[in-house]
Design a protein around this nucleic acid. Structure first.
Lengths: 340, 340
DNA sequence: CTGAAAGCGCTTACAG
DNA sequence: CTGAAAGCGCTTACAG
């Protein structure tokens, strides 16, 4: 079943059928009705490949999500889709694995879907530096900063990782904890010029919290570098507690890791927060269902989504300069930290 | 940058470029090298729309996943992708929302991607009955039964929901529990002929477990119908405990609901398993990180994936009759049930 | 308002 | 082994 069949059955030419299908105004009511009737009765749906091959000016906004299992992104995505729909555009969502290159995907999408704009949920700066200049449409990077990238068509909305992390760590320090372990991803040693990835930024926040309070912090001994997963958190907690059994608190750079850490602490016969206090990061739903409820830094998922879409739509309307926005986070005290 | 540009730059015709790009054998080594060199230096990637518009005989297998947030599916998907890759095919994954119609998607995909076959991760029988006869390629439905559907090109691999659920409920009954609440999805009253959805099958299992042990079960009073989510589980547990505070055990038809129930029980000042025992279903990773660890029915995710792909590949090779396979489940005792 | 025709970027018989 | 050409199913100026 193609547009040709619809044309034959309705007695109109394919061009007219196409116009009806795309809601063009310059068609007679009679033609519209007759064609739509045929479409309905045949259940015809146009071939997207053919359509995109030629079409310019779609109403699509592509959303590229890095990590189908990322619960924070899942939450942001939901709101992003709703906002896009509310703006009378259609969202085309592409899920990528953690390791996939989102910019390559974006390049493919610009060629094949020709979207009005692209929302990136998560992204790796290295990938952008490599090839982002090949994508010309307005884009917005949600949840990680994009200002240093310096692309005129790339805006960003994010939480301040350094400050958020400083707050989390500060929460522990201010509760009297001095021996604190940090579970995060790869961050090597932090150098001020090269604060690339999220783990590095959050580690910088930890150090800042310590420095400001005159508490020593040894990134080598007090840090475990693991994957952002429950299992990673489990391993990280064990590693740190093995190394220093006197640790009284752990900060996990993501709630999923904190959930793993919670279990690891229990498996060592210790309790949260009586023996070990625990803070996570992100504020995913999951963290409010654990026993005890997780203390965490809640990123404003809805606000990230809303501003991301607003900024993007704005850029699509009339090309403006890229904007880089920081949205506030919130410390959730939960039940997993105790004062000592 | 199109195939035409590559043709011009390499000095060959577009047809030859196309053959090289698609790995056809009938090209001279010289042509292949020169063309590949140009492709490499330009970073050219063919337009998928144009490619799919004409191409027959792709090496793609489509995977349609219902529910991006379904952790069981996430696990199955991972293995499914690996198996497809191992068979030297490429997996094209489509994520759908819970409410989206997977069969409509399949119809679109068959037209636009022309895949060798389709794997459905989850599916609604109603959707299949409606329109599945429009998809002609071999398909396999993973995690829900497809035998009663009776399509010659639709195989299935699943866990026996009735028996699995009977086992979960039996575990509680055999531990001495008599007042057991069941948290599930919509299931109305079970009628033997119309056991359509998963909730109904699992409810049937519960009733079977009771019947066989001579324990009365009142589906109206002992059942809460909620969404398959943590929040749903939270509400369901509260509903049941409000109605009958003497309940000593809960069975949640999915681990995500059990996680919500766990929190609800705690919020009522009760403990698992001392005051209320709890069993889930699915065996997602999450359930082994809760405190206490969840008792559950573990579905064999890897095996579901492996057999699903094997069966599909087999159908693709030489068309055979549809097969409907049941893979075993496993009771995980966890730490959330106590004997009374 | 409608039709006829060109063209999107590929693939694929068909010749040679 | 390679090229020229038809065609996949649409959209979109261009006439009328």
């Amino acid at each position: 079943m193609t547009i040709k069949d619809i044309a034959r059955r309705s007695g109109y030419a394919v061009g007219t059928v196409s116009r009806v299908l795309n809601g063009h105004p310059d068609v007679s009511d009679e033609a519209r009705e007759r064609i739509l009737a045929v479409v309905r009765e045949t259940g015809f749906q146009p071939n997207g490949n053919a359509r995109h091959l030629k079409q310019r000016g779609s109403r699509d906004i592509a959303v590229i999500v890095k990590g189908a299992g990322n619960l924070l992104f899942a939450r942001i995505l939901e709101e992003t889709q709703a906002r896009i729909k509310a703006a009378d555009k259609t969202a085309a969502v592409y899920y990528l694995d953690e390791e996939d290159n989102e910019v390559e995907q974006a390049i493919r999408v610009t060629r094949e879907l020709k979207p009005l704009g692209i929302v990136f949920l998560g992204g790796n700066k290295g990938n952008f530096l490599g090839a982002f200049d090949q994508v010309k449409c307005p884009c917005v990077l949600v949840s990680t900063r994009g200002d240093e990238l310096g692309f005129p068509n790339l805006s960003s909305v994010s939480t301040d990782d350094v400050t958020g992390s400083e707050r989390a760590m500060g929460f522990l320090l201010d509760a009297g904890h001095r021996r604190v372990g940090v579970i995060g991803g790869e961050s090597a040693v932090v150098s001020p010029e090269l604060q690339c990835n999220t783990s590095q930024l959050r580690l910088a926040g930890c150090m800042q919290a310590c420095t400001r309070r005159g508490v020593p912090f040894d990134p080598v001994r007090q840090t475990a570098q693991v994957r952002y997963s429950m299992e990673g958190g489990y391993q990280g907690a064990n590693e740190l507690l093995d190394q220093d059994p006197e640790i009284t608190a752990l900060f996990a750079m993501a709630d999923v890791m904190a959930i793993g850490a919670l279990r690891a602490i229990r498996d060592r016969g210790l309790r949260v927060p009586e023996d070990v206090s625990l803070v996570g990061y992100d504020g995913i739903e999951q963290g409010s269902y654990t026993v005890p409820r997780l203390a965490t830094i809640r990123q404003g998922a809805d606000r990230l989504a809303r501003r991301g879409v607003e900024i993007l739509l704005n850029q699509i309307e009339g090309p403006a300069a890229a904007v880089h926005e920081i949205v506030p986070f919130q410390l959730v005290e939960g039940e997993s930290v105790r004062s000592i």
